[in-house]
Design a protein around this nucleic acid. Structure first.
Lengths: 189, 189
DNA sequence: AAACAAAACTAACAATTGTTAGTTTGATAC
DNA sequence: GTATCAAACTAACAATTGTTAGTTTTGTTT
């Protein structure tokens, strides 16, 4: 286990606090206390509170963008693509559940350039998702319900995984993937 | 349309701002500006910023509690009960989408008594939901997937409706209910 | 027109915010 | 043992925060 840089330790601690109270409610003094140092000392490692937030969010957003592009450019069928998207979300969630809280709830506190960059990535991600569902519907691979409702319900479940999965210590990640695919694609009734 | 009290107007304006930036990032001066008055004038109508938050959240939480209790105590079968829960969420979302943002994202900023009260209601709501699914599974009315995954995926979709539905002006609420029930209960594949 | 209440205002407060400047500590390298 | 450098510290700042006190405006009722 290679030792993390002090900067990364600070970012990890911040992600936990941001998850608990949100970016705006966490002060640099809160973060310093969590690290066992004084607030001013944080600035030996980071440039600003904003830098912490953008590091967390932009990194994750780029992970999703890269993952989605691979899936879009593959030659698998619709169902397999949807399964791979579910996989992607579960993988990222297992690796950085805390950061996903910021991605989901605090992206609007990003400043100018990063905010635009983030919104562009999110838009493209949703468009890619929507197009996969649309093509699957045309090819008859999935049922003819309203596209927006299918996209929304699937995406909102995957986006909220970070809140729920870390609590469920009993469930193995492979079992989660299997049952998640079943529930999202085949329904419960 | 009976004229709303000034207090209620302030609470509605606050809910919109809380939805956009979160409770902690909205200042009383922001809220005053949205109302076209000065911050100090707000205090002729409300007691504190905290009172605004708790009014929004506790009211909604009680609506869900009352609605869920009616469903639990009805003698309908599992699928019908799940349909009624979907209905409940859609109804509340249509009536107060802005307030639901606070319920979902800012409940942790409630203070002592209200925080405990809220957490108790949320716990009981989730327990009721889980028990309905569990009973349906025992009676063979729904498929034998992992209960937590079914509860979580359904609930996360319903809880996030507020983010999405107000944007979809094309979709009629009855059609939404029908397709939502289809997607959540019968799957897409 | 006088009285009253509702709702706005100005001015200020004490506390907290992110951040900077300058200094001290502690370990490693020479 | 001295130089070096990362990483901590103390002290302070200007701005912003929720809120209070006291006053003026506005509109309605008598």
């Amino acid at each position: 286990m290679r030792p993390e840089s002090r900067k990364q330790e600070i970012i990890n601690a911040a992600a936990i606090l941001f998850k608990e109270k949100g970016y705006s409610a966490v002060t640099m003094r809160d973060l310093a206390k969590a690290m066992g140092i004084k607030a001013a000392s944080l600035y030996n490692h980071i440039q600003s509170k904003q830098e912490i937030l953008s590091t967390i969010i932009i990194g994750l957003a780029e992970e999703f963008t890269v993952g989605m592009n691979k899936i879009v450019n593959s030659d698998e069928n619709t169902i397999q693509k949807l399964e791979n998207i579910i996989d992607l979300h579960i993988d990222v969630t297992l690796r950085n559940a805390d950061g996903l809280a910021s991605l989901n709830n605090d992206w609007m506190h990003l400043e100018e350039d990063n905010l635009q960059y983030f919104e562009k990535m999110r838009q493209e991600y949703e468009d890619n998702f929507r197009n996969i569902v649309k093509k699957g519907l045309e090819k008859g691979e999935i049922k003819p319900y309203n596209i927006e409702i299918m996209v929304f319900s699937t995406l909102s479940t995957l986006r909220t995984l970070y809140l729920w999965y870390p609590e469920q210590k009993e469930i193995d990640s492979d079992i989660l993937k299997r049952d998640m695919i079943s529930v999202l694609l085949k329904g419960v009734a």
